[in-house]
Amino acid sequence: MAVHVRPLCAKWCTYVPGARASFHAMTAAARPDPIVTADNAFFWEACARGELVAQRCGACGAFAHPPRPMCPRCHSTQREVARLSGRGEVWSWIVPRHPAPIGFAEAPVVALIALDEGVRLVSNVVGVAPEAMRNGLRVEVAFEATAGGKAVPVFRAMGRG
């Protein structure tokens, strides 16, 4: 495992200031922190408050994900942070088996979630076994902690726990 971790650490720590401390604080099964940039910080800050948000144009109201500096429809730079319902459906899903993703005790279900507001988000479906996964599964957001104490959105099947 150390063979895999060291080059990742070297790259990651170079790229993300301050990552070195949180990386080395990780246990083997601690989810990596999000990579925060000037353009996406609003998203991860909302996650820390337990809110799922997306960028929305302040002029024409169009949602945009991934976030961008300008609305491609009307070219307004007024960017709003809009709270989302947190509901959607599984658009696609996979289970990465090899090499094992770093920061997960068990292989996660990685899913593309089509949110009801019309944007797609890469995330995890938790609490559903791979054998029970299916496209179109209705899901709603929950939040999970990362190694460095940040939060990321994950999704659970609707109507359960």
């Binding site: 989810r31 990596p32 922190d33 999000p34 990579i35 940039t37 996406n40 991934p66 658009w91 696609s92 899903w93 996979i94 990465p96 090499p99 993703p101 770093i102 920061g103 997960f104 292989a107 996660p108 990685v110 899913a111 593309l112 988000l121 890469v122 995330s123 995890n124 496209n135 990362t146 990321v152 994950v154």
Partner: peptide, 23 residues
């Protein structure tokens, strides 16, 4: 936009590609 994948265990080319191919 790979940074939107990393915290979810989508951390390598095969994983990134497969997520679209499954559809």
């Amino acid at each position: 936009s790979l940074l939107w994948c990393m915290p979810f265990g989508a951390q390598a080319p095969a994983t990134w590609a497969a997520l679209a191919i499954q559809r």
